[in-house]
Design a protein around this nucleic acid. Sequence first.
DNA 1: TACATACCTGACTAAAATGGTCAAGTTTAC
DNA 2: GTAAACTTGACCATTTTAGTCAGGTATGTA
Lengths: 141, 141
Amino acid sequence: MKLTSKGRYAVMALVDLARFDTINPVSLRDISLRQGISLDYLEQIFSKLKKNQIVKSTRGTQGGYVLSKKPNEIKLTNIFNAVDEKVKTVQCKKESKKGCNGKATKCVTHNLWDELETHINSFFEKKSLEDLLKNNSERIN
Amino acid sequence: MKLTSKGRYAVMALVDLARFDTINPVSLRDISLRQGISLDYLEQIFSKLKKNQIVKSTRGTQGGYVLSKKPNEIKLTNIFNAVDEKVKTVQCKKESKKGCNGKATKCVTHNLWDELETHINSFFEKKSLEDLLKNNSERIN
DNA sequence: TACATACCTGACTAAAATGGTCAAGTTTAC
DNA sequence: GTAAACTTGACCATTTTAGTCAGGTATGTA
Ligand code: FES
Ligand code: FES
């Protein structure tokens, strides 16, 4: 079970945005340099974040991205959904009546993985960007 | 973030074992048929489970595997460690002083992922094979 | 003692996912 | 007009996953 770079980078970039977008839009180039993420890869990620109305963009010189909501309104769940970083623990289709073994009943571990998924998702639903900002400034002081 | 088949199969197989090993050792062939898991793949998994003293084996005709501890003494943590299904959320080496960005400080999200890892692992530490047996028989009745 | 059953070991591999790069734009501030 | 910055889509190398395959070795039973 591991977290992919796409999810990790999305959150890193948005924290960066939350810290620096108060005066001017922030360019991906800046984020790329500050956070050490490939510029081209960031573009893919921000394209998805924009489609999901998590960020807004301004084109042209001095352009860049800005959060489209307040940091406390952006939960990790929203971010992860936007970039398709989903938690997948069960193998079977959840709606399907068939189990992952192809039989008519769910496998012996189905309920366990389902609980696990809920457990993990509850973490993402609790945490917002604002929590991360606090956490970060605590560490600086 | 997704669970791999190796971890999933290991738990499925051990639940099967816990249900059927009370009289005779259980052959991998039986598990393979009941759970719909490739026999050759099961052998790889059980090799690791054996090295980690989670199961014991008997060779020859009528041979097979038996749990080496009571179901309530086998936690998911133990199983996952045995088959190398580890939860990995941070990108950096934890001991290292360097962050995942190569800089001297930890990245802005490091603490978050570390919390997440703890959150997930606590689930695995709580759950034992016995819990799964209960859950399963509940569903049958 | 033969022989079938079942464990044991290690090498190999097809397919998918990951983590990007690259190329060719369009928009807009200055 | 030109450079900065967003936009789009194709492409690709590497790694991981989820196995397969080909040999073994041990042992209960007939
Ligand atoms: S995971 Fe849903 S049936 Fe096995
Ligand atoms: S995850 Fe540890 S420094 Fe980024």
